[in-house]
Simulated assay, not measured.
Amino acid sequence: MIWDDVYLSSAAVWLGEKEDVKLAVSEGRYDAEEQVEDDFLAMRVAPDVAPPDMAVQAAERALERSGADRDSFALVVHASVGFQGADHWSPAPYIQSRTVGGNGSAVEVKQASNGGLAALELAAGYLSAQRGPASALVTTADRYSLPSFDRYRSDKGLPRGDGGTALVLTRGAGVARLLSTSIVSDTTHEALYRGPGPLHDLSGADGWPVDIRKHRQAYLDQGIDIWELIASVNARQQEAIQTALKDAGVDSGEIARWVFPFAGRGVVDWELRKRDFGIEEERTTWDWGRTVGHLGAGDQAAGIVRLLETGAVRPGDKVVLAGIGAGFYLGCAVLEITETPDWTVTAD
């Protein structure tokens, strides 16, 4: 999709405290061989903060940076992957009531780890349809804690970090202009994370903590060709990126920085990224992401915060945010930096 007059007014992140992964290894919570393969240095851990409160704290910082009139907010969108603090409950109105207030629509988005990009695209479309000036707040938040989720063992190659993010979108001006977005789906291997068994009528019926490894292996044991699966997902990711680049009117060589999910080095095909798009590791946010962990739906927003706070991007630079969510959803957004904000580094 091509966007006109949709801007990133501000952005912020709230992260848990750093936990050195070597501590987790020494305590037997993180497999030593996997730690070496993943190449993470730290995970963000927030054991006593509910995810929506993480989103609220990130949002308050983003709103302070934006200066947008809180009466202008027509939409609040919250994206998450896991449990948000209460059963049979929507966190979006909770976040709205503690941030911008008002009578705008509050929406929850579930698109797994691509949820942040889906929320961004939804908000951009909503703002574009408004008759006059309007703003939108986009948040993400997740916490990965026992007994329901084991941040180091529930999945392979994707140890999880705790944190919330917030983006303020406006029309007219901002620190970055949204040029395009693209989200495609490929449901061929939808069951990879679900497993081949029947659905349950009760959360946790399959046992705690969540065992994504078991689900994945059970699915592959049906005779699924893992290389065909990988090729299928890679093809859709390339499609999403190429479509967004084309809609933005740029090619990959013009992209200053790339923000990908914070996934372990062992599950990322760096050679493929270099071959298809000329992406060098130093032009990504991996060096910082390996001190954070996978934030569920929030990696992309956290990455752009990091780039803006540290002055790693300048006016005229193009930035790509790329995502992938189980199911599968593949997303991409292209932004052009328009201002160099004077923001304190908080995403450290």
Rank of each mutant, 00 (worst) to 15 (best):
L321F: 04
Q96E: 04
V320S: 13
L272M: 12
S66M: 06
E34W: 03
P209A: 06
S232E: 06
G325Y: 00
D155P: 02
I224Q: 06
A333G: 14
G85R: 03
L63V: 10
R143F: 04
R160Q: 06
Y7C: 11
D221A: 05
G157P: 09
A62K: 05
T140D: 07
Y144S: 10
G316Y: 07
T284H: 01
A46T: 00
G253F: 03
A24P: 08
A59K: 01
G102W: 00
M1D: 08
W270V: 14
Q84E: 02
E271L: 05
I2M: 13
G164N: 03
G316W: 05
F40T: 04
T139I: 02
S185A: 15
H294M: 08
W343V: 09
T99F: 04
L146E: 14
T344E: 14
D5R: 06
E64M: 08
G82H: 09
P51V: 13
E27W: 03
T340I: 12
R213V: 15
I337L: 10
D4G: 07
A74M: 04
L245F: 07
V305A: 14
S26P: 00
P315W: 08
V319M: 13
A79D: 01
K274T: 05
D53F: 02
L199W: 10
R306A: 13
E27Q: 15
V107Y: 01
A235L: 12
E228H: 12
L75R: 03
C332I: 06
L75D: 09
A129T: 01
A176Q: 07
V6I: 15
Y144Q: 05
R177T: 15
I241W: 06
E34H: 04
V320G: 03
V168D: 08
V49T: 15
R194L: 15
V319F: 13
G331V: 11
R273N: 03
E33L: 13
V81D: 07
G101I: 14
A124M: 06
T310I: 05
T346M: 12
R290L: 00
A301L: 10
A191R: 10
V250G: 01
D201E: 13
D4Q: 14
D4F: 05
V313S: 10
D225E: 14
A124T: 02
V49P: 00
R265W: 10
L335N: 02
L330K: 01
A191M: 12
R306Y: 07
I279H: 02
I337C: 04
H88D: 14
M43A: 13
N103G: 12
T340P: 06
V56G: 08
S252V: 00
L178Q: 12
S145W: 03
T188S: 06
T140Y: 00
R29N: 05
G223F: 02
G278Q: 09
D31S: 10
D38Y: 08
G102Y: 02
M54W: 01
D20R: 14
I255N: 07
